[in-house]
Computed example of a mutant assay.
Amino acid sequence: MLGPPWGTPAAAWVCDGRVIHVTEPALPQLVSLLLAYSPVALVCSTVRDRDDSTMIVKALLDRTDPMCSAFLDDVADALCESWFGCPRWTAQEIWWRALGNWAMVDGELSMRGVDVMSMPAPRATNTIRALLLKWAAGDETRVEKLTHDFDTPPARVAAKEAVRGVAVEEAAHDWNAVMALASKHR
Rank of each mutant, 00 (worst) to 15 (best):
M1C: 01
L2F: 11
P5M: 09
W6M: 14
W6F: 15
T8V: 13
A11E: 15
A11K: 15
A12V: 02
W13I: 01
W13D: 08
D16W: 07
V19Y: 00
H21I: 00
V22H: 07
T23L: 09
A26Q: 08
L27S: 05
L30R: 03
V31R: 03
L33T: 06
L35A: 06
A36K: 07
A36H: 11
Y37Q: 12
S38C: 00
S38Y: 05
S38A: 07
V40A: 02
V43M: 03
V43H: 01
T46N: 01
T46F: 00
V47K: 02
R50Q: 10
D51R: 14
D52K: 01
D52Y: 02
D52E: 01
D52T: 04
T54L: 12
T54V: 15
M55T: 12
K58Q: 14
A59L: 07
R63N: 07
T64Q: 13
M67I: 15
M67F: 12
C68G: 14
A70L: 09
F71Y: 10
D74K: 07
A76M: 06
A78T: 09
S82C: 03
G85K: 10
R88I: 01
R88A: 09
A91E: 02
A91F: 05
Q92H: 06
Q92V: 09
E93F: 08
W96A: 04
A98E: 05
L99C: 08
W102K: 04
V105Y: 01
V105E: 00
G107H: 05
G107Y: 04
G107V: 03
E108M: 11
M111L: 12
M117Y: 01
S118M: 09
P122Q: 06
R123A: 14
R123L: 12
R123D: 09
A124P: 07
A124L: 07
N126D: 14
R129L: 07
A130G: 11
L131Q: 03
L132M: 07
L133R: 09
A136N: 09
G138Y: 04
E140Y: 04
E144W: 01
E144H: 07
E144P: 00
L146W: 04
F150S: 06
P154K: 06
A155E: 15
A155W: 11
R156T: 09
V157T: 11
A158Y: 10
A159R: 14
A159I: 12
A159V: 11
K160G: 06
E161D: 14
A162T: 13
A162P: 06
R164S: 10
R164W: 05
R164P: 00
V166E: 13
V166T: 13
V166S: 08
A167G: 02
E170H: 13
A172T: 14
H173Y: 15
W175A: 15
W175V: 12
W175Y: 13
V178P: 00
V178N: 10
A180T: 15
A180F: 12
L181I: 10
A182H: 13
A182K: 15
S183W: 11
K184F: 08
R186C: 05
R186H: 13
